[in-house]
Design a protein around this nucleic acid. Sequence first.
DNA 1: GATGTTTCCTGACTGC
DNA 2: TGCAGTCAGGAAACAT
Length: 486
Amino acid sequence: MPELPEVETVRRGLTRLVGGATIQSVTVLYPKMVSPEAATFVADLTGKTIEKIDRRGKYLLFRFNGDLTMVSHLRMEGKYDVQPAGSPVTKHTHVVFTLTDGRELRYTDTRKFGRMRLMATGKETTLPGLATMGPEPTEATLTFDYMKQRFQKSKKAIKPFLLDQSNIAGLGNIYVDETLWMSRIHPLQEVNTLPDFQIRQLRENIIKELNMAILGHGTTVHSFSTAFGEAGEFQNHLRVYGRKGLACQRCGTPIEKTKVAQRGTAFCPACQKYHKHVKQTMILGLTGGIATGKSTVSAVFREFDIPVIDADAIAHSVLAPGSDGVDQVWEAFGDRVFEAGKLNRKALGHIVFNDADELKRLTDITGPLISAAIKAAVSTYRRKHANLVVLDAPTLFEAGYAAKTNEIMVVKISAAQQLQRLMARDDLSEDQAESRIKSQLPLQNKIEKADVVIDNSGSVETTRVQVVEWLDKMGFIKTPAEDSAG
DNA sequence: GATGTTTCCTGACTGC
DNA sequence: TGCAGTCAGGAAACAT
């Protein structure tokens, strides 16, 4: 089902194939598809030259000489292709444009939902669909201010709201599900309940996703193909659509399928929770590989007075002297990890890092304690109405914290740099450093799950610039005027 | 005015 | 195997 990226792919293909071509004759095999009535449609187009093909939302606009525009909507399964004149047509070919160069531009549509409308150029903006069409999803045209103002006015569920072309142009069922998953928003969440940070995430993801899909020549589901008859390749990148029952690529929970506004809707029940009381504080998960420079990034957040919850420090504190954690470790491991009544962390480490069962025994104790402490820290910042809280966790994915965040930032450097930095930092041999790196979830794997990647392979300043840009884009850096206004 | 439902259409699929 | 029923979905038309 063609959405904006597919229609744009068709537009580009057709421009190359039939731009400048002249129509010798037109055959309409399914009159209901065209307007004005077929005889007029045919007469008006005969002898006309395709000067240009534009696009608005999911509509194709064929521009002919003589100030004539054909507005064409592919709806569910419409397709254009170019064949030599006289070659056999299929039973689903409904309109044939015979060109003066011996080729035919054919329109095929199994469900006959597509429509073509011929009118004076300029008049197309008065068509019901085009007259009320929302902005194109680009950086320049889809602004945060527009979205915020529009979102405040509607109590609709976000899914049907995004499918409504008068709000934003070009989104269809697939990309709505994808961008809601990317933004961790439940499809039934009421539009006017979304906090600013989620509107910004959604905006960013819509623009990013549609651009990526255009680069990938669209998504092939059912029958979409480009003007060259090739399949698009973007379906290989889909994260929720058509993945019912498969593991969420972010948190591992099985993707569920439900119906929202009469549309099949895929979502992750863990990442995309419905919130009766929407939380205004954004939780950013910060992670990376060992020695990739996470602390350089967290220092930038601290510089802007943004609270950082350090999962490593919490992990250390849950086994502090006199804590419940220490009591439980004593019960589980006994005297062998205690010396003069005090926990011997080195001895404990030696046991658990050489035996997977013992490691599990320890993490079964510390895991829930760490989670509870993180939750308590987050609650404290929420009560203080913090806009943003950073959860700095080396094992964000491994420990299952990813689903508790609104966005994930991964810090990367090259494999060679990582090795060098680790050897220098911890005074390790190359073999030792390599084995430490290999014991972790591969950095590439984390990068693939990231919403934003910070490249820390350059100077501290270039890293800082990237973090500041992200803060600015997400609206977390106030101008002096906003600051004094509170 | 905003929101919800039905309609258009055919092929693929499911269950008996 | 054959058949009836269901599902897929973009946007306009209609209903609330």
